[in-house]
Each structure stands twice: as C-alpha cells, then as structure tokens.
Amino acid sequence: MTAVVTANGLTKRFKNSVALDGATFQIESGRIVGLIGPNGAGKTTALKAILGLTTFDGHLSVLGLDPRKDRDKLMEQVCFIADVAVLPRWLKVRDAVDFVANTHPRFDRAKCDAFLARTKLQPQQKVKQLSKGMIVQLHLALVMSIDAKLLVLDEPTLGLDILYRKQFYQSLLEDYFDEEKTILVTTHQVEEIEHILTDLMFIRDGKIVLDTDMDSLGERFSEVLVSAELAAAARQLNPLDERQVFGKSIFLFDNVSRPQLESLGEVRRPSIGDLFVATMKGTYA
C-alpha cells in the first residue's frame, strides 16, 4: 500500500492560538479514515492544509505533491466536499454538470447523469430552489462522478435529516469507494460512520492522539460491564474511563489482556463515541 497523505510535524499557528501542533500521521490508499475531534481541535485546519487552502509549517505530502506549491495539479486527483451547501445559489443543476464536465478532466458525465436520475433534481432548477438535502445530493453526484484518488469530506451531512445522511454514506460505499480510492472524513455524528471506517484518528489540541485501524481498535480497547463488588478490582487495572449504568459500572480499558477482563464481567467492543468521550475528557474544562 502506498501513502496518500504523509504529514510530519504539521503546524499552523494563528495570532493567538495554535490550530495544529506538530500533527504527524499517514493515510494509506484504499482506506476510509475518520478524523474525529472536538470543536476547535484542528480538524478543519488539517483538511485545509491537505487541500492547499492554507499555509502551514512542517512537512506534508499529498499524492507526492506539496499542496502549497502544486495545488492546481493536486486538485485533478483530489476532491472535497467542505461543509454542506456551498454550491452557489444562482447555479442551475444543468449548468453545474456542464461546468464540471468541461473543467474537470476526470469527470464522467454518464455516471453523473445516472446519479441524478435517481434523485428528484430537475436540470433547470437553481440551487436556491433546492432543499439542503437535495443540494448535497447534487454535490455528491458531481463529486462521485470524478475519478479522484482522494476524497475529503468535512462535515458533509451537517444539518441533514437521517434519510439523507444514511443515503449519503450508503452511496459513497456502494457507488464510489474502491481499493483505488481513499476517503478522509470528519464529522461529529460518529455513530453514523462507525461501521464504514477502516481507520480512525482522534485529534485534540492540534495533535493526533489516536491513530489506529478499526481491527486493532477492537483488540486494543475493551469495555467491561462490572458489577459493584468487582469495581474496586477493575479500578486497579487503570481504566481510561468509568461510568455507571443501573448500579453497574462500565469500564473502558486500553491494552489489558482479554482473559483478565473476562474475569471481571461481560466484555464488549467500545463504540467510537464512548472511546471519544473517554479520550477527550477535560477538553473544554
């Protein structure tokens, strides 16, 4: 596997804050990577750096190119949906397709027409006449018809109802993703992308605090449902987190052997949401 993105000591300072503080990570090709972090942790800044939209210090290589210098070339291989509803309001559906078809060398018009045929979008409609969900459908149809190596999604489903949200990720998986492509996605709705991710990165205060693939995540972290009498024993094992449910305690452990945990109670794989909350404890304090 080859690295699509290699970041080394990625740093971005604003006047009175640090958005990225020496973030170091690597994204392999053919993966779906979730970049998860609390508000203000540097997610969007990291994505902007990858897309060549901002300056930064440190080393960053995207598909072998420096996004600061070779942005024009890079954008033929990289596509992004930054936030929902950034399509210009005056644009007609038909014109949007025409425009991308004629300016993007890797755009497949037939594909796009097929995607649009599955929606209620009409060619003569303007973006301002569309609902937020339909705008995202249009944007997604455009983006999925581009044969890009890297697709970056920044909160692509914010403010959409659950039908649109499910459909969004389902389309990506069924009609777009393959081993040649890489998707990097940030979102706060962690539960919804949990099952589609192959890799997970947590970012906090501009640093990558967790970088793992989903398989080893299950091996490394465990959640144990412990009854009250064994709680003290569980606390001895340095849990990451403890919470109470119906008189029992749920402990979250990092790298504790499985047999040892099974003696304490029922062991399960933690959800990303619980892991996230445990990892980010005290972020806003």
Binding site: M75, C79, A82, V86, P88, R89, V143
Partner: peptide, 17 residues
C-alpha cells in the same frame, strides 16, 4: 461574494487555477 457565501469552497474543489 463567493467568499462570503462560502461557495468559493466549491470552485476551489475543481482543478481551476
């Protein structure tokens, strides 16, 4: 205008210099 309504992010996602 496109910076204000953020549609610049769409134009910038295309390979246009």
């Amino acid at each position: 205008d496109d910076r204000r309504d953020r549609s610049i992010l769409f134009w910038k996602s295309l390979p246009l210099s």
